[in-house]
Structures are given as C-alpha cells and as structure tokens.
C-alpha cells in the first residue's frame, strides 16, 4: 500500500489523492465480482464482461437491422410494421427492375440507380484521394518541421466542425455570390456558378468531404508512422538505401495495419456520405450529387406518400455492399500479413 505512505514532509502527491476514490470504487466492486466469478468460473468472466457491450450492440445494431429487413418485405405508406402489408421481395424486384443497369433511365427506380452510380464514382475518387492526401500529409507532418504542432492542429481542425457547418461554409464560398467568385471578380475573371455545374458540384462534394475528414485519417497514419522504429531507417541509410526505396520497403509495409484501418473507415464513410452534401448541393444540380443515403432518406422520409419499404430495401442492399467490401479488404489485409510473416 505504497500510496498510504506519506511523502517527506507529511503530504500526499496529487496522483495518490486522485487514486483514493478509484481504490474505494474497486474495493466496492471487488466482492460482487468475486461472487460472480465463483458462480461462472474464470472462463465465464469473459462473457460476463462482454455482455453489456453485446447487449448494446444487439439493441442498437442487430435489432434495427432485423426490423429494417422486415420493413423491406412490406409495402404501403404506413409507418408501423404491423400496419404494413407483406409484399415479399417486391421492393427488391422494383429496385432491380432495369433493362440496362448502366442507364438509369431504363430502370423503374431510375433515381436509385443514379444514386448508386454517383456513389460508386464518389467512393472511387474520394477514397483514393483521401488515402493519398492523408498519407502525404502524415509523412510531411512526421518530419522535423517548424511549428509542427501548429500544422497538425491546422489539418485536424476541420474534423471538429459539424458536417452542417462544413456544408454551409463551402456553400458560402462556392455559391454564385460566394467568396470564390468575389475573389475571381476582384482578379478580373468572370464569376462562375460552380454549384450549378454537374461536374464542378460533384468535384466540390469530393473535395469538401476530403477537407472535412482528412485530419482524422492523417492522425491515425501519423500514429502509425511514429510507431516505426527509427533504427530501421538508420540501418537502411547505412546500407545506402534511397528514400523512395525506404518508403516502399520499410514505411509502407509497417504502416499497412494502420492503412488498412484507414481504408476501411474511409470507404464506409464514403458510401454513407450525406450530411455535408445535403447542405452543400442538396443532391443537385438535377441528381448529379444525389448519393445513396440521400435517396434512402428522401424515399423513406422526405417525400409525400413516402415508401419506407423501398427505403429499407435500398439500405439493406447498401449494408450488404459495405459488408462485402469490408470483408474483401480485411481478407486482403490478412493475406498481406501472412505473406509478411513468411518472409
């Protein structure tokens, strides 16, 4: 009981004072935990400790998933499941009712396929650029820079903003009478309606989402970079290895676990993109920035005579795609790890 020993001069350190209530709490739960352990055995304790987490997961993830699946098998505009009629796979059939999947106009639910196509393009571009920018930024911030903490804060700051604020800020910059056009006009250029242009508005959604979230992923990669032992680089330098080779042979393989986490997180978030885009472009012009989550929201909630069954079916499909993508990536990651271990 080291903490009980007074320091020289008779005082206690701050840490010891803080630990007093912690020790009290631990001694209070000690007896009941021992009782539980006697009942369940040591093996059962793992289940006991996991139970609260599993319960929360079950209530807030699994149960809604099954309810959502049940909704996808029903039709009509009623909100409550018991009031809805069972239609089997009709909602899925409606979503897949297409002559040519690459031409949304040939589909019964053309906006669904437009949203799928937009989301696919968004994911490809956003994930690639996000990984690239986050990695480059992390590599730069990992070097001995002047005011390094300041730059780290600068890149992380947008992560602290709410997506609605992010959307509004960029709307004020990009709209017809926005900051960007004001600047262009000042430089003698004609103002341009960025958000009315299909390509520019799409590019804006990609760019804004990268700006808003890059700091978080940079931080994860930076932590990975700092965990790589410095002596590996020193050894490589002594062997005359060029920096590019050191990056491909040392940095990237050792950063792979962090990179994999980042890829999975970025991918999931990209497929789920909604809030900042909803504020920035509202899905327009036309449907050029309508992504799958907005389609689900509008089908299930925002339109008059909404169709919760169709929205549920679309969200089940989106969930399935996410699961497949995540499993593929995790599989590839494990394969890479095994390969690395064999070497």
């Amino acid at each position: 009981m080291k903490a009980d020993v007074p320091r020289e001069g008779g005082g206690f350190s701050l840490g010891e004072v803080v630990m007093v209530p912690v020790r009290l709490a631990l001694s209070a739960i000690d007896a009941p935990l021992r009782w539980v352990q006697r009942r369940l055995g040591i093996g059962g304790m793992a289940t006991f400790f996991l139970l609260p987490n599993m319960l929360i997961f079950g209530i807030f993830v699994l149960l809604p998933f099954f309810i959502n699946f049940a909704y996808s098998m029903t039709g009509g505009t009623a909100l409550f499941l018991p009031d809805r009629s069972f239609v089997g796979g009709d909602q899925y059939a409606r979503l897949f009712d297409c002559v040519n999947y690459t031409d949304p106009n040939s589909c019964a639910e053309d906006t669904f396929w437009t949203a799928v196509g937009n989301t696919a393009w968004f994911v490809v571009l956003q994930v690639t650029l996000m990984i690239l920018f986050s990695l480059v930024t992390a590599l730069i911030l990992n070097r001995e820079l002047m005011a390094r903490s300041f730059w780290r804060a600068v890149f992380f700051f947008p992560v602290l903003l709410s997506p609605v604020v992010v959307g509004l800020i960029w709307k004020w910059i990009l709209q017809r009478q926005g900051l960007l056009n004001f600047g262009l006009y000042g430089l003698g250029f004609d103002p341009y309606t960025w958000l009315n242009d299909r390509n520019w508005s799409f590019a804006a959604t990609v760019g804004v989402s990268i700006w808003a979230h890059m700091g978080f992923y940079t931080l994860i990669l930076l932590a990975g970079l700092q965990a790589i032992p410095k002596d590996l680089y020193e050894a490589a330098e002594m062997d005359g290895t060029r920096p590019a080779r050191a990056f491909w042979r040392i940095t990237l393989p050792l950063l792979m676990p962090n990179l994999l986490v980042v890829i999975v997180l970025v991918l999931i978030r990209a497929v789920q993109i909604f809030d900042e885009v909803y504020v920035l472009t509202g899905g327009g012009p036309g449907t050029s920035t309508l992504y799958i989550t907005q389609y689900i929201y509008e089908t299930g909630f925002a339109t008059q005579l909404r169709n919760p069954g169709l929205a549920a079916a679309a969200s089940i499909l989106m969930g399935a795609v996410l699961v497949v993508l995540t499993l593929v990536q995790l599989g590839l990651g494990r394969k890479g790890e095994k390969k690395g271990a064999r070497k």
Binding site: T111, R176, N196, T281, G282, G283, G284, G286, E298, A302
Partner: peptide, 14 residues
C-alpha cells in the same frame, strides 16, 4: 433562374 431549380434533388422546397 436556374439556381433555384437545380439547387437540390428530389422534391425539396427552395
């Protein structure tokens, strides 16, 4: 004005 009509998808009011 194109701005009002292309500023959203779906039936959102502007």
């Amino acid at each position: 004005s194109k701005d009002v009509w292309v500023s959203a998808a779906g039936s959102t009011y502007r």
